[in-house]
């Protein structure tokens, strides 16, 4: 293990955050992802756009290992994680949020965030309750502040509004020391006010944390990223800077003209 850690430490700063080579994911005969090759630098912020069924969420599932890739390799900060189970990838600094909130509805907000902090710590199996000045509890409290949920800290998650649940979803992904985050439609179902709050949360993340965001709302997506990947039918269709993508006639034909742009 120590050699591994040293390897990872030396890789930081030189390697790419994410490197996908020829990643394909099949569901039976259906190819949800076809030969995806993608490189993301550390700290880079990128949007993945595409119509429904383009393979965006499957791409996330392959990167995190929720669904392993059928073929191809995935490197995370130069380490080959293709065959790692999800929790091993998470412990290396990868995080994700879910399109449909995946929270622990029977627990309080604080418990949810505290669990997220435990997940990447050594105290996962601790049978001892945290003490008053526990570091993990403190970091959980900070995260709750950061996503503006301090007022509902002790409420059950099932009692939160949709917008609050989306914010909690982000808090869970920020726990520990994330190096790279995958946001799956963080703005889904949010009001305009909540959207601008989301933009503020995303843009105020520390600069070393890169992310990929799947977002249909171009007003949100293009304000929080520096590069864009367009997907179509499981393949990468175009890559470029936001303004290039926005003005690309093919993209407009395929996506923006399709009625998604509100």
């Amino acid at each position: 293990m120590p050699a591994n850690v040293a390897e990872r430490l030396s890789a930081v700063g030189t390697a790419n955050a994410l490197e996908l080579r020829g990643v394909t994911r099949l569901f039976g005969a259906l190819a949800a992802l076809v030969d995806i090759t993608l490189t993301v630098r550390p700290g880079e912020r990128r949007a993945v756009l595409g119509s429904n069924g383009a393979g965006k969420t499957t791409l996330f599932n392959c990167i995190t290992g929720d669904f392993p890739a059928s073929s191809g390799t995935i490197r995370f900060f130069s380490e080959d994680v293709t065959h790692f189970p999800p929790h091993e990838r998470i412990r290396r600094g990868l995080r994700r949020t879910y399109q449909i909130s995946a929270l622990f509805t029977g627990l309080t907000v604080l418990d949810n965030v505290y669990l997220a902090c435990c997940g990447i710590s050594r105290g996962r199996f601790s049978l001892l309750r945290p003490r008053r000045n526990d570091a993990l509890v403190a970091s959980a409290e900070n995260l709750i502040q950061a996503v503006h949920l301090a007022g509902v800290r002790d409420q059950l998650v099932s009692e939160l509004s949709h917008g609050q649940q989306r914010q909690l979803e982000i808090a869970l992904a920020l726990a520990g020391a994330p190096r790279f985050i995958l946001f799956d439609e963080p703005a889904a179902g949010l009001s305009p006010t909540e959207r601008s709050e989301l933009v503020e949360i995303l843009t105020s993340l520390p600069a070393h944390i890169g992310y990929i965001v799947i977002e249909h709302d171009m007003d949100v997506a293009l304000r929080v990223v520096e590069s864009v990947t367009m997907m179509h039918n499981g393949r990468i269709f175009k890559e470029g800077r936001p303004e290039e993508i926005e003005s690309d006639p093919e993209v407009q034909e395929l996506y923006l003209g399709g009625g998604h742009h509100g």
Binding site: H87, Y98, A102, L103, C118, L172
Partner: peptide
């Protein structure tokens, strides 16, 4: 409540 999310939080 959600085993898949637990994996995504780093739990085995």
């Amino acid at each position: 409540d959600n085993a898949r999310r637990m994996e995504a939080l780093g739990f085995n």
